[in-house]
Amino acid sequence: MPTRARRTQRRNQVLSREQIIDTAIDLLDTGGEGALTVRAMTDRLATGSGAIYYHVGNRDELLDTATETVITAALATKPARAAASPEDEIRAVALALFDAIAAHQWLATRLTLQIIRNPVGPVTVGIFERLGQQVGALGVPQPRWFDAASTLVHYILGAVSQNARVEGDTSGIDPDADREEFFDAASAAWQALDPEDYPFMHAIVGQIREHDDREQFLTGIAVVLDGLTNLR
């Protein structure tokens, strides 16, 4: 009669680490961090909690691993052109991160936490290395490399987080609100402001309805790149 240890070993061999991570990402995509529970994982995978802990550790480690998996895939993105310039490389990385966070709305919070909590982890190091190499290729002096790369990272994280789900206190935020309705309401409210006190807000009222988040993001990258080239 097989022992419990042998049964556990066979089950661990059948259930792969990749299956666990893929399932965790699917749960996160469906319901955010609140949906990622050991109970949900064991139900989805038809296994015991021991198999999950065996492969990926506890829930926090699973969140970190899911984040690392998505970000590593995004960082592997290459520019469309074969003979890519440093600017092309930076835009490719920035857009890959933008698209990853748009596709996985839980990711913005976890990505920020990883960069803060684990500066030597693969997520932080991977992002800074991929962007930093291109900062050097742009001709930025080496003493300014950290400042330049940090500026890029801060802009990317800040910009993409505006389009992502905010974990934590979301009082007053409707996660199912229609984007067009939101901007219509915002532009109407801005239009109602006194034009003498708020001339700038009145000037951009029409633009808020028409803007594209991805194109706006690329405009910000262009502004940052222009500034970095001046550091030469």
Rank of each mutant, 00 (worst) to 15 (best):
L138T: 02
V135S: 04
R144N: 10
V135R: 00
E167N: 12
V166A: 03
V140R: 00
P141I: 02
I156N: 11
N163I: 02
A149N: 11
P141E: 01
Q162C: 12
F146R: 13
L157F: 05
A149F: 02
E167C: 06
A159P: 02
V135Q: 05
W145T: 11
L152N: 05
V140M: 00
A164W: 07
L157T: 05
D147L: 09
N163E: 14
P143A: 01
P141H: 01
Q162M: 13
D147T: 10
A149C: 15
Y155S: 03
A137T: 03
P141W: 01
I156G: 08
D147N: 13
S150H: 10
S161I: 06
E167K: 10
G158N: 07
L157S: 11
R144F: 06
G136L: 06
H154N: 15
A137L: 07
G139C: 06
F146M: 11
V166P: 00
Y155W: 06
G168A: 04
S150E: 15
S161C: 13
V153G: 11
G136V: 08
T151K: 10
L157I: 04
T151G: 15
L138V: 01
P143D: 03
W145A: 09
V140L: 00
G136H: 09
V135A: 03
L157K: 12
A164E: 03
E167I: 15
I156K: 12
H154S: 15
A159E: 06
L157H: 10
V135L: 06
V135N: 04
F146I: 09
V140C: 00
A159Y: 12
I156L: 11
R165G: 06
R144I: 05
T151F: 08
V160E: 14
V160R: 15
A148T: 06
A137N: 08
R144Y: 12
A148P: 04
Y155L: 06
T151I: 06
G158A: 05
T151M: 14
G136C: 07
S150W: 07
G168R: 04
Y155V: 00
V166R: 03
